[in-house]
């Protein structure tokens, strides 16, 4: 969806697929999210790290601000974060059809793998080679997520309030094991309270 430039912030131009034909955009979404669905595992954060690396850094389809907004919406709405993020990104790049295509592309490899291993999942689980590869991937995924954390942290304006909010969120989830939903809702309220009194955001020029 390339429209609505007058409202809020427009996407960066560059090689964003907004100018490409719908078919090309859908193909690109299929390949990108199909790849992500096939290689990530665990929670949604590995997907977020992949999106940051691929769509923000390499392809320039999204800005980091847009990705953070999409994650915020994904965290505070029902459903798996990976699916929410895929639908939203797909919609931003190619409308409703894009949202559906990106989601199907994400889901299909995961579905296929489970269909294939389900009949022999005990053998799959007890296979030491599979376990060795997965242990290696797990270490790589940690590095990937840590890198995304550092990169995205650099993109957030540096001030005492942001530092305090980020640290508080980290402690609440990592050490106190609170549900991420409440933390995100807390962040949204914090934003209204903190920036609400500042004329800059009120005027509209972000």
């Amino acid at each position: 969806m390339a429209g609505g430039e007058d409202a809020g912030k427009a996407r960066q131009p560059g090689d964003a697929p907004g100018e490409a034909s719908l078919g090309r955009r859908l193909l690109a979404l299929t390949l990108t999210f199909g790849k992500f669905g096939g290689i990530t595992f665990g929670g949604g954060y590995a997907i977020i790290a992949l999106l940051e690396d691929d769509l923000v850094r390499r392809k320039g389809w999204l800005t980091q601000d847009e990705l953070l907004n999409i994650i915020t919406v994904g965290e505070s709405t029902p459903g798996p974060i990976a699916v929410n993020t895929a639908t939203f990104v797909g919609y931003r790049l190619a409308g409703v059809l894009g949202g559906v295509v990106a989601t199907l592309a994400l889901v299909f490899p995961a579905w296929l793998v489970i269909v294939l291993v389900s009949s022999c999942y005990l053998a799959f689980r007890d296979n030491t080679w599979v376990a060795a590869a997965l242990a290696g991937i797990r270490v790589a995924a940690i590095v990937l997520i840590a890198r995304a954390f550092l990169r995205m942290g650099r993109g957030v304006p540096r001030n005492a309030a942001n530092l305090a909010a980020g640290t508080l969120a980290f402690v609440a989830v990592a050490l106190l094991d609170l549900n991420a939903l409440w933390i995100v809702v807390g962040g949204l309220l914090f934003g209204v309270a903190w920036y609400g009194v500042r004329p800059r955001l009120r005027e509209g020029a972000e």
């Binding site: 309030a161 909010a165 969120a169 962040g187």
Partner: peptide, 17 residues
Amino acid sequence: RAALEGAKPVVVGLIGA
């Protein structure tokens, strides 16, 4: 806009967590 701006550092904290 203010709410999303406030959620940014929080989401980064969640990724770190």
